[in-house]
């Protein structure tokens, strides 16, 4: 083990983790695999953890480092009996996959827990002065993260290190689960999502907005990590980005195609994206690619009063219509 974090992190966290492990122990004999998180190459990181045998369960760790949305793995495991541990936001991706018939409900066992938020590694990296190599120690409480790196100790306020999506989270508890460990925090789905950042950006002038994206996407290396991390990018090997038929994008290194790809991604996610933020988290050059999806969701919400990832039986708004659309005012010529 040797992970200093797990020894010092006591309290509720430990209690529900044990309950969660018991849940998984109960269910595992009927399942091919259960996906959760465990410690990784250093104490500041976690990694997806595939539990096949009972002893694997001991390694399971839930913490603010459990950033990955594990739902991304589900379509690839179709046909197998899969258990999955989900944060509130992750569970909404599961709902979407169910809605789109990309996974079968009877094959999936969902383990929920009350999520109090996960960290944004980019923020930590910044607080650590830009490099996160050689982490020797990491301890987390509700209020702070204590990190030792190269003989220097840092005490970072937890609230400032949380991912943006967590500070305005309305779904801390899984919206769908077969087992739930710990006490529910309480979802606030009836409240509106917070799109203040999008609105602020939209107040910029046209050249400022256009110029901003050109500058941001200039960094893009077309690695498609954003797409690969997206739980709803289900086309996989047949993504429009790398196809000649249809031939939406060239393979040239130009900012036009980079920008176009993000619009394609956002539009393909319209009415489906749950804003789990995996695209932005995965981006190795920190391009704020989530904003396009947030804007799309804002429009979907305002026009159709629809939010993705809540109801597995719902029909996404762009796959349906009304004869009379209450919130669409067509241009009068």
């Amino acid at each position: 083990m040797g992970n200093p974090r797990s020894e010092s992190n006591k309290g509720d966290q430990v209690k529900f983790q044990e309950e969660l492990k018991d849940n998984i122990r109960k269910a595992l004999p009927e399942l091919d695999v259960v996906i959760g998180w465990c410690g990784s190459f250093d104490p500041l990181h976690a990694t997806p953890h595939f539990m096949r045998r009972e002893e694997d369960i001991d390694k399971l760790e839930i913490s603010p480092l459990s950033v990955h949305n594990l739902a991304t793995y589900l379509p690839g495991l179709r046909g197998k009996k899969v258990g999955i541990v989900v944060k509130g936001c992750d569970s909404r991706s599961v709902v979407e996959l169910l809605q789109e018939n990309l996974i079968n409900r009877e094959d999936i066992t969902i383990f929920g827990f009350p999520c109090t938020g996960v960290v944004d590694q980019s923020k930590i990296k910044k607080a650590l002065g830009g490099h996160t190599g050689n982490i020797e120690f990491c301890d987390m409480s509700e209020s702070v993260i204590v990190i030792k790196s190269e003989d220097k100790a840092y005490t970072l306020p937890m609230a400032e290190m949380l991912a943006d999506k967590c500070s305005s989270c309305r779904y801390p508890d899984a919206v769908i689960s077969d087992y739930f460990a710990g006490e529910k925090i309480g979802n606030k789905g009836e409240e509106d999502a917070d799109y203040a950042a999008v609105e602020t950006f939209e107040n910029l002038s046209v050249p400022e907005r256009f110029g901003y994206w050109l500058k941001e996407f200039d960094r893009c290396i077309r690695c498609y990590a954003c797409r690969n991390a997206c739980p709803l990018c289900v086309c996989r090997d047949h993504c429009a980005a790398e196809s000649r038929d249809p031939h939406w994008l060239s393979q040239e290194n130009n900012v036009r195609d980079k920008l176009m790809f993000q619009v394609i991604h956002a539009y393909h996610l319209a009415g489906r994206c749950t804003e789990c933020g995996e695209c932005q988290r995965a981006c190795p050059v920190d391009i704020p690619v989530l904003m396009f999806k947030q804007k799309m969701n804002k429009e979907i919400r305002d026009t159709f009063q629809y939010e993705a990832g809540v109801d597995p039986e719902a029909t996404p708004p762009l796959l349906s219509f009304k004869m009379k659309e209450e919130n669409i005012t067509e241009k009068v010529w």
Binding site: V198, V206, W213, L259, K295, E299, F321, E325
Partner: peptide
């Protein structure tokens, strides 16, 4: 009916990229 929904959303999305929404209109 499908077009109306999809085009309306794209019309309203354009400003975020940096295009005036008036650059694109749809009608019947």
């Amino acid at each position: 009916f499908y077009a109306r929904r999809r085009l309306e959303i794209m019309h309203n999305f354009l400003p975020i990229i940096g295009y005036e929404p008036e650059r694109f209109e749809y009608t019947w």
